[in-house]
Write a protein that binds this DNA or RNA. Structure first.
Length: 576
RNA sequence: GGUUCCGUAGCUCAGCUGGAUAGAGCAACAGCCUUCUAAGCUGUGGGUCACGCGUUCGAAUCGCGUCGGAAUCACCA
C-alpha cells in the first residue's frame, strides 16, 4: 500500500466517524504536499464540503484533529484554504525506508500473467539506420523493459523488410556500377555499402527512367525464385544484416524473434478469402478486393490488387493472426511512427470485422518523428543523421569530456573505452527517451547532445558519486544499516518518499507506454540526491547509526537508479 | 476538403485522470572547489500556458469555436 492510499483510507474513516458519510478511499484526493508548505501529504477537502456543511478550514481542522488522535503514524497537521497538510511520524518513514531497503525485488511488479509481443525497429535492407530508427529502437527496447518490469511476459520482435522493389533497386545499381565491390574489398560496413547502391540507383533513374523496367524484371525474377537473382539478393542482405548487427550491438539492442518479410509477405491471403466468403470484403469487377470502411468514417481499403497480389495491409493482417495464434499473445504492441496512424486504425478495424476479439489488444505505440531545425530529414538532401556516425560522435564527446576532467587517471585503457561508450550512449538514450514518445522531437546536429543538466551523464555521475562514497566507507569497514534509532532529516524523508513512489511510477509508465515518465523520475531522484549530497556530510557524521543509515539510504538510492535507468537501457558507471 | 495529433520562458522539454504562487535544463548574469567526484550546488532575470467562449468552489489540464503547424487519406511499404 502506498502512503497516499494509507492516508486516503484513514481519511475515509475520519469522514465516516465525523459526518457519518461513506466515501470510499478511492474518492479521496491525496497528493504530495508542495514544497512551500509544512507537511508530507495533502488531503484536498473541497470535495468534502458538501458532506461536512462547514467551511474549508473548519472541515480540514476537524479531519486533521481526528487523524492525529486516531492514527499514531500521523503526527501533525495544518489546514490552509481547503488543503489539509499532514505530517507523518519519523518512525513511519524509517519503517517504510527499511521495507524498501530490504526488498531486493523492489520495483518489480507482481506478474500480470499476460504475454505481450512488442514489435520494433523493423528496418528496410536498402539503407543504413538513421536517427529516426534510433528513436524507434530505443523506444521499443525500453517499452519492452518497462512492460516486463510491470509484470508482463514480453517477446521482443522485429520484422525485417528484406524484399520488394526498393531492394531490387540497390541490387540493380550494384550489378551495373559497383564492379563487384564488397564490404571486405571496400572496408565499408555492409549496410552503408548497400545504402550507397540505393543512392546510386536514384542517380541512374534520373539519367534514364527506363532502368525502372529492369528493376521490375528483377523483382519478377525474384518472385520466380530465379537462382541468380536470389543469390545476389541473399548476398547483399547478408551484408546489411552484418552491418545492422553492429549497430544493434552498439545500441545494446536484441530481439527474441526476428521475422523476415520474404517469409511473411504472402500471409493474409487466406484471411481475404474468408472475408470474401463471409461478406466482410467485396470483389470489384477488375478482380481487386476491398474492405468498405465508409460506415466507420474511413475510406475503402484495398486488400488484394486486381492481379491477385497482396499489399502491405494484407500481410500485416496475416502476420498478426499468426503471431497471436503461435505465441498465445494477450496483447501486441507495434512501435511504429505516427505517419502510420491510419494504417493501424484500419488494421484493427478490419481484424475486428473479421471477428477477432484480440484486435482490441493491439496497441500502436505511435511516436513522433525526429526533426531537424530545417524540418524533416531527407536523404535526397543529405540531411539524414546516420546512426553509426551519431554513436561514434557521442563516444568522442564522452572521451574528451572525461579527459578534460582528468578523473579517470589510473583506469585501464580497456575500462576507459567501456566507460566512454557507456556515457556517450547514456547521453543519447536519455536525450531521446526523456521526451514524450507521442510528440515529435527536435535534434540539432550543430549542437552536441549535452552532458550537463537534465541529461544521462548527470544521472550516471550521481551514481558514480554514490559508489565513490560507498567504496570509501567499505574501506573504513563501515557497513550500511537501517535503524529506527537514526531519525530521518526532512531531506532524507523527501528521498524516501521519492524512492517509495518508484513502483507506482513503473505502473504509470507501463500504462502509458512511456519511458519518458521513468526518465523524469530518474532526473528527480538524481537532482534530489545532489542537493542532499551538497549539504549533508555522510562519512564525516559522528553518530554511527546515523552514518550507517545514510550509507544505506544512498546505497538504496543507487540501486533504484540502476533499476530505473535499466528500463531506459542505460548503464551506470562506478566512476566517471 | 475529411480524419488524427500538436501549440507552455529566447531555445529544448516537464506538468494534462481539474487543485495552493505554472516547473526543469540550456543560453545570460552573480556566487560556491585546502571539505565524501564542480558532468555538481546556490541565487537573479525571463510566462497573456496560441486566442475566445463555456463547465466548475477552482482550468495549462475538460467541452465548443477560431487561428497556426504536422501527419495521413496510393492497385507504395
Amino acid at each position: 500500500m502506498t502512503t497516499e492510499q494509507f492516508i486516503a483510507t484513514k481519511a475515509s474513516a475520519a469522514v465516516n466517524a465525523l459526518y457519518g458519510a461513506d466515501i470510499p478511499e478511492s474518492r479521496m484526493q491525496v497528493q504530495v504536499t508542495r514544497k512551500e508548505f509544512e507537511g508530507d501529504f495533502t488531503l484536498v477537502v473541497f470535495p468534502l464540503l458538501k458532506i461536512s456543511h462547514a467551511s474549508p478550514d473548519a472541515t480540514g481542522n476537524a479531519i486533521g484533529e481526528w487523524l492525529t488522535s486516531n492514527c499514531p503514524e500521523i503526527e501533525a497537521f495544518n489546514s490552509v484554504k481547503g488543503f489539509l497538510n499532514l505530517s507523518l511520524s519519523n518512525i513511519y518513514w524509517s519503517r517504510l525506508f527499511a521495507s524498501i531497503e530490504s526488498d531486493a525485488r523492489f520495483g518489480e511488479l507482481p506478474s500480470t500473467g499476460r504475454r505481450i509481443m512488442v514489435e520494433f525497429s523493423s528496418p528496410n535492407t536498402n539503407k543504413p539506420l538513421h536517427l529516426g530508427h534510433v528513436r524507434n529502437n530505443l523506444l521499443g527496447a525500453s517499452v519492452s523493459n518497462l512492460l516486463k518490469a510491470a509484470g508482463n511476459d514480453v517477446i521482443r520482435t522485429t520484422l525485417v523488410n528484406d524484399r520488394g522493389v526498393h531492394i531490387c533497386k540497390s541490387m540493380y545499381a550494384w550489378q551495373q556500377r559497383f564492379d563487384g565491390a564488397t564490404p571486405a574489398s571496400t572496408g565499408k560496413k555492409g549496410d552503408h555499402l548497400v545504402g550507397d547502391c540505393y543512392v546510386e540507383y536514384a542517380r541512374m533513374e534520373k539519367e534514364d527512367p527506363s532502368v525502372l523496367d529492369k528493376v521490375h524484371d528483377m523483382l519478377v525474377k525474384w518472385e520466380e525464385n530465379d537462382p541468380e537473382v536470389r543469390r545476389l539478393w541473399s548476398m547483399m542482405n547478408e551484408w546489411v544484416f552484418e552491418g545492422f548487427e553492429q549497430t544493434y550491438k552498439a545500441l545494446g539492442i536484441s530481439f527474441d524473434k526476428t521475422y523476415y518479410e520474404h517469409e511473411t509477405y504472402l500471409l493474409g491471403k487466406e484471411l481475404v478469402r474468408k472475408g470474401l466468403e463471409t461478406g466482410v470484403f467485396v470483389k470489384d469487377p477488375d478482380g481487386s478486393v476491398w474492405c468498405d470502411l465508409t460506415a466507420d468514417g474511413l475510406d475503402r481499403k484495398l486488400l488484394l490488387r486486381s492481379d491477385g497480389t497482396s499489399v502491405y495491409m494484407t500481410q500485416d493482417l496475416g502476420t498478426a493472426e499468426r503471431r497471436f495464434a503461435e505465441h498465445e499473445l494477450d496483447s501486441h504492441v507495434y512501435v511504429v511512427g505516427d505517419e502510420q496512424n491510419y494504417h493501424f486504425q484500419v488494421l484493427k478495424l478490419v481484424l475486428k470485422k473479421l471477428g477477432f476479439d484480440w484486435a482490441d489488444q493491439i496497441y500502436h505505440l505511435s511516436y513522433g518523428m525526429v526533426e531537424l531545425p530545417e524540418g524533416k530529414m531527407k536523404s535526397r538532401e543529405g540531411t539524414v543523421v546516420d546512426a553509426d556516425d551519431l554513436i561514434e560522435k557521442m563516444y568522442e564527446e564522452a572521451k574528451s569530456t572525461s579527459e578534460e576532467s582528468g578523473k579517470l587517471e589510473g583506469v585501464s585503457e580497456e575500462e576507459k573505452d567501456r566507460l566512454y561508450h557507456m556515457i556517450g550512449l547514456g547521453a543519447l538514450k536519455y536525450f531521446i527517451l526523456k521526451v514524450d514518445p507521442r510528440k515529435k522531437m527536435l535534434f540539432n546536429p550543430k549542437e552536441s547532445i549535452d552532458f550537463n543538466g537534465n541529461t544521462g551523464p548527470f544521472i550516471q555521475y550521481t551514481h558514480a558519486r554514490i559508489k565513490s562514497i560507498l567504496r570509501k566507507a567499505d574501506a573504513l569497514g563501515i557497513r550500511p544499516a537501517v535503524s529506527e534509532d537514526a531519525p530521518l532529516s526532512p531531506k532524507e524523508i523527501r528521498l524516501v518518499k521519492l524512492l517509495a513512489s518508484y513502483p507506482q511510477k513503473v505502473q504509470e509508465a507501463a500504462d502509458a507506454f512511456s519511458p519518458a515518465l521513468i526518465a523524469n523520475y530518474c532526473y528527480d531522484l538524481a537532482k534530489e540526491f545532489n542537493q542532499y549530497y551538497h549539504d549533508t556530510p555522510i562519512l564525516k557524521e559522528e553518530n554511527s547509526s546515523i552514518l550507517r543509515m545514510r550509507l544505506a539510504l544512498i546505497e538504496t538510492l543507487a540501486n533504484v537508479l540502476v533499476k530505473a535507468t535499466g528500463i531506459l537501457g542505460m548503464e551506470l558507471p562506478d566512476r566517471m
